[in-house]
Design a binder for these strands. Structure first.
Lengths: 107, 107
DNA sequence: TTTTCCAATAGCCAGCGAGTTATCGATTGT
DNA sequence: ACAATCGATAACTCGCTGGCTATTGGAAAA
């Protein structure tokens, strides 16, 4: 279940791509031109990043005339949150087991 | 503040490396040999991954005779959690602004 | 002390991926 | 119809990184 954190980690590992996603989270709907203006890389590079983000389900695109607007899909972060919770859960679980053991040794 | 999610994303993007970290979270303290046995890659590869994980603060090492034990440093995930919360926060904040606007238009 | 074992380092290679420029398709404005 | 603009695609380069084998440094066992 929820093996999909794989693609999220890979997608968000790149700083430029993550910056684009962050900007969409902060400021909402943006055209490719607007994103390119602040990305520090060329328009084709931005388009490529947006393609990867879309593939990962992190953004949606909306065509409006000759402009394309992108927006963040916040729900897509869920598997990432699940994963960290799971790691924390493993940790806690091992801690509980240790507690049990100590309790049993104590009595 | 907390720009350190950068290194976390990069470190956890690799599946082999993430699997090693997950194993340390699940099962706690492990020797390099034990980790290598299940990693599907060579011992030097595992050592390199452990080095990267250590650099990111995700694991600790403990020397015991000629064995080296590694363990997960769960607290290191905090910047990752902070980042996701921040993204969620941006989202919520924009939503609130929209609500305010609608309220003002309504009255 | 010699041999064996564990883990780290060195050195190398191959593939991937992020960047570039050039171009194309589509839509809008003249 | 023609020009201009927007964004995606093509084709290519180049650096990084994850993998390997071989070797080294230490610590335990013989």
């Amino acid at each position: 279940m929820s093996q999909s954190h794989e693609i999220l980690f890979k997608t968000l590992a790149d700083p430029t791509r993550r910056a684009i996603f962050e900007r969409l989270c902060r400021d909402g709907d943006q055209t490719v031109a607007a994103l390119t203006a602040r990305a520090g890389v060329s328009q084709p590079a931005v388009s490529k990043h947006l393609g990867v983000l879309k593939q990962a389900g992190l953004v949606r695109d909306r065509h409006e005339g000759r402009n394309t607007h992108y927006s963040a899909e916040l729900g897509a972060l869920a598997p990432l949150i699940d994963w960290t919770n799971q790691m924390a859960g493993f940790w806690q679980s091992r801690f509980d087991n240790l507690e049990d053991l100590l309790k049993r040794m104590d009595q």
